[in-house]
């Protein structure tokens, strides 16, 4: 049988614009009877192995995030199915952790308490605090566990979010453009930390949605490029250049040019 960690089979997503007649409609009966329908993802097939770091690239609005949310179980495809470890995905799971694009730390909890939310299985509160400190140290955040999220910079918040995600000991980590709201320098730092985390926890499979080609080149084992909507998998590339990588180096230069080409950019290089 198939031993892939994640199998995405013929996943199709369409948005149906309802015509506003919501009165007394229950469930999904109303869908696709009327109203126009727009196909977002069309027949997506993927195989991802355990421990891979896979980046999904594509134009904005091509359905990258939608695909990620489907694999993570937050939404359902119109057709097709996703299997993780052979089991059909039917909802979010505690070991499939999603790091959101915008801040999703609970603003009413301190950073330490936020990370501790993922450590609720640890009964002893002191031990929990200690562990949340350790996870924060993993992303180079120290001495802020008693601060509230609004007291930190965007980069620190995103770090804390990654710490919370790691504290949940994810089997799969989903990252939806986690660094897109940050300044360039912070992004470079966080890339390094991601790489470090992936080396520290090699068994964690990471699915990383981005539109930053250098980010994808520097971090991932594999790149998946989606076409414009209705999106299909346009191409899949394995990157076997050892870390640490320089996205501007010759090893990656050709691949980089190809990716730009695939994304319809011909003059950037």
């Amino acid at each position: 049988m198939n031993t892939s960690k994640i199998r995405v089979d013929q996943v199709t997503v369409e948005y149906t614009k309802s015509n506003g007649r919501k009165w007394l409609s229950f469930g999904n009966h109303r869908k696709r009877k009327d109203g126009e329908c727009r196909v977002v993802l069309h027949d997506i097939n993927l195989r991802i192995e355990g421990g891979e770091f896979v980046s999904i690239l594509g134009h904005s609005g091509c359905g990258k995030s939608t695909l990620l949310k489907i694999i993570a179980g937050f939404s359902r495809p119109a057709a097709g199915e996703v299997r993780i470890d052979g089991r059909k995905v039917d909802g979010p799971r505690p070991d499939h952790v999603f790091v959101f694009q915008e801040g999703a730390l609970f603003p009413w909890l301190t950073i330490g308490e936020n990370v501790a939310m993922a450590l609720r299985s640890v009964a002893d509160s002191k031990e929990r605090l200690q562990q949340s400190r350790e996870y924060l140290a993993l992303v180079a955040l120290e001495g802020v566990e008693n601060d509230y999220p609004h007291m930190l910079s965007g980069g620190m918040r995103q770090r804390a979010e990654i710490a919370r995600a790691m504290a949940a000991r994810p089997d799969i980590l989903f990252m939806d453009e986690p660094f897109s709201g940050l300044d360039h320098l912070t992004r470079l730092h966080l890339r390094e930390e991601m790489l470090y985390l992936h080396i520290m926890l090699p068994q964690t499979t990471i699915l990383f949605v981005t539109h930053d080609i250098d980010e994808a080149l520097q971090l991932s084992n594999r790149l998946i490029i989606l076409s414009e909507p209705p999106a299909r998998v346009k191409c899949c590339r394995t990157i076997d250049v050892p870390h640490p990588r320089n996205p501007a180096s010759d090893d990656l230069g050709e691949l980089r040019a190809q990716i730009y080409h695939h994304l319809g950019v011909h003059t950037a290089l």
Partner: peptide
């Protein structure tokens, strides 16, 4: 998004009320 996080962290119904909805 907070409910998605809650689903992701598998908060129980009670935790969802007193750690999310209430605060």
């Amino acid at each position: 998004i907070y409910f998605q996080v809650a689903a992701n962290l598998h908060l129980t119904k009670w935790e969802r009320i007193h750690r999310l909805v209430l605060p």
